[in-house]
Amino acid sequence: MSQFPVIAIVDDDEGIRDALSDLLAVSGFASLAYDGAASFLSEYPARRFDCLITDIRMPGMTGIELIELLHDTGQSLPTVILTSIVDERAHARSAALGAHAWLTKPVTDERLLAALASAIHTQLPHSDFKP
């Protein structure tokens, strides 16, 4: 089992997945990247994650549909939305479903890492983790 927080990255853009994986690795996180909601769901909840980073627009199931499914099935996985779209309805819906942050691409490393740390501390209240 990893001693680092484990982050699931769900984004259909391979470059984004690779960049996020690299950033997380040098920032003290472990991560697994998925090209869409279906590939993520094939491993979740059997695999433990401390947080989910997801895009909104993806082929098949959208990021909003993914967090709706998790919410509707009682899964409490802290979620950070990382997207290039500006959609107030989707933003409001993600907040209503409990998403911890909505970040618009491009985002600074510092802002993303702060959102992850906040989401993880919410999930793990006694954690000493600090990025």
Rank of each mutant, 00 (worst) to 15 (best):
Ala115Asn: 08
His100Ser: 08
Arg47Asp: 13
Pro59Cys: 00
Ala117Gly: 01
Ser118Ala: 04
Ala96Thr: 12
Pro131Gln: 11
Ser39Val: 00
Arg17Ala: 04
His100Thr: 08
Val86Asp: 13
Asp55Arg: 01
Glu43Thr: 04
Phe29Ile: 06
Asp55Thr: 03
Met1Gly: 10
Ala33Leu: 00
Glu88His: 12
Pro59His: 11
Glu43Gly: 09
His121Arg: 12
Leu77Met: 06
Gly60Arg: 13
Arg111Ile: 03
Ala101Thr: 07
Gly36Val: 10
Ser127Ile: 02
Lys105Ser: 01
Gly63Asp: 06
Glu88Asp: 09
Asp12Met: 06
Glu65Gly: 05
Ala96Leu: 09
Ala119Asp: 03
Ala114Ile: 04
Pro125His: 08
Thr73Ile: 01
Ser39Ile: 10
Ile56Lys: 01
Tyr44Glu: 06
Lys105Ala: 00
Pro45Trp: 13
Thr104Lys: 01
Val26Ala: 12
His126Glu: 08
Asp18Ser: 09
Arg57Met: 05
Gln123Ile: 02
Leu70Thr: 15
Leu23Lys: 07
Asp35Met: 15
Ile56Met: 04
Lys105Cys: 07
Ser118Lys: 14
Glu43Asp: 12
Ala96Ser: 14
Ile120Ser: 01
Thr79Cys: 11
Asp55Leu: 05
Glu68Thr: 13
Ala92Leu: 09
Glu68Phe: 15
Phe129Lys: 14
Leu116Asn: 05
Gly63Ser: 03
Thr122Leu: 08
Tyr44Lys: 10
Ala119Ile: 01
Leu113Met: 09
Gly63Ile: 03
Ile7Lys: 09
Tyr44Asp: 13
His71Ala: 15
Ser76Phe: 02
Ile7Arg: 10
Thr83Asn: 09
Leu69Met: 09
Lys105Ile: 02
Gly36Ile: 15
Phe29Ser: 01
Leu82Asn: 14
Gln123Asn: 12
Lys105Glu: 04
Lys130Cys: 14
Arg57Gln: 13
Ala95His: 15
Ser76Pro: 14
Ile53Gln: 04
Ile9Lys: 01
Thr54Met: 06
Ala90Gly: 08
Asp12Ser: 06
Glu68Ser: 15
Val107Arg: 04
Val26Cys: 10
Ile53Trp: 05
Ala8Trp: 10
Asp109Met: 05
His71Phe: 11
